[in-house]
């Protein structure tokens, strides 16, 4: 590759997935439109993860669903709104070159197997199973907190695809390393860590919770050290690639997650204040860092903090 290429020295491998650089769009952000995915790809995103898709369309909760709480942190209880498997497979049907991972959410093995059967013929990288959304009943974390359900769902998805499967884990009632172990033992290839953390905020003037669902998930700057810790512990104890996620707003945050053990890193909330162009800026800065440090490839830093 040419040294002048904007992705020179930035390519990474995650299981069978090759990415031109380690940046990914996190699930839940801008994830319903092929045109938007194409725009992000032009902005040099490494890969995109879609909004979590369910068997049937979901409208989600009434607004307010997303709140900025200042300092680069956000609360959301969108309620997994998504167009459902059939409309969404149509949305992606013309995809050729955009590296897309489809995020899946559901309550039963049956739902997951139906979705994978529909999506598997599309041009996609693989799947990210959302077992950690903290604010919808009978989905996400309520499934993720039940190791037997995790085991069954991952096994079902495994049976229906040969594409890489990542399981997105969060901070719930089960230790994140244990949950990752169950997922990998059941046939997952990758762990994505972490999801948002259950949180809430109350307006002191009206004395009311602001989110319509009252409780939602905390994302952004505030959760970054927790994400870094989770990636560190998972990559120390489990033999599987990890994708870092949580509170990333700069190239330095990406480097930090990679040093904790992440092979790639997802970016979400910061899109709010910066827009899609942030991927271009961050990858440029990553390239500068790699050159300055004299590395052959950015992957050299993956898990480097474990040495100490």
């Amino acid at each position: 590759m040419d040294i002048n290429d904007k992705n020179y020295n930035l390519s990474v491998e995650i299981d069978k997935i090759h990415l031109r650089n380690p940046t990914m769009l996190a699930s839940g952000i801008l994830g319903i439109s092929q045109s938007i995915f194409e725009r992000l790809y032009k902005e040099n995103v490494g890969a995109v993860v879609t909004k979590s898709i369910s068997v049937n369309p979901m409208k989600g909760y009434p607004n307010p669903t997303v709140i900025s709480i200042g300092g680069g942190s956000y609360l959301n209880a969108v309620g997994l709104s998504n167009p459902g498997v059939d409309a969404f497979s149509k949305e992606l049907s013309k995809n050729k070159k955009i590296p897309i991972m489809i995020s899946l959410v559901g309550s039963s093995e049956k739902e997951f197997s139906r979705m994978v059967k529909v999506f598997d013929s599309l041009s996609i990288l693989g799947y990210e199973i959302n077992l950690s959304c903290p604010h919808v009943s009978k989905m996400g974390m309520e499934v993720g907190d039940d190791p037997e359900a995790v085991n069954k769902i991952v096994k079902t998805v495994r049976m229906n695809t040969t594409k890489p499967i990542s399981v997105k884990v969060g901070v719930g009632s089960i230790d994140v390393v244990e949950l990752a172990r169950v997922a990998i033992d059941a046939g997952a290839n990758i762990i994505t860590a972490i999801n948002t953390l259950r949180a809430m905020t109350i307006d002191i003037e009206t004395m009311m919770p602001i989110l319509s669902n009252r409780v939602g998930g905390l994302s952004g700057t505030a959760i970054k050290p927790i994400g870094v810790r989770c990636v560190y512990e998972i990559s120390k104890n489990i033999k599987a690639p990890v994708i870092g996620c949580g509170g990333v707003s700069s190239w330095q945050d990406i480097i930090e997650y990679m040093m904790a053990g992440a092979s790639a890193v997802q970016i979400g909330s910061v899109l709010g204040s910066n827009g899609p162009k942030i991927f271009n800026r961050i990858t440029k800065d990553l390239k500068n860092y790699v050159e300055k440090k004299g590395m052959k490839n950015i992957s050299e830093i993956v898990g480097i903090a474990h040495k100490y």
Partner: peptide, 21 residues
């Protein structure tokens, strides 16, 4: 719109966001 600040993607118009672009 859900968020109004370029996060949710509900307001997409082709590759643009009505809230942010």
């Amino acid at each position: 719109m859900k968020c109004g600040i370029g996060i949710c993607g509900s307001c997409c118009l082709d590759a643009s966001l009505v809230c942010q672009d």
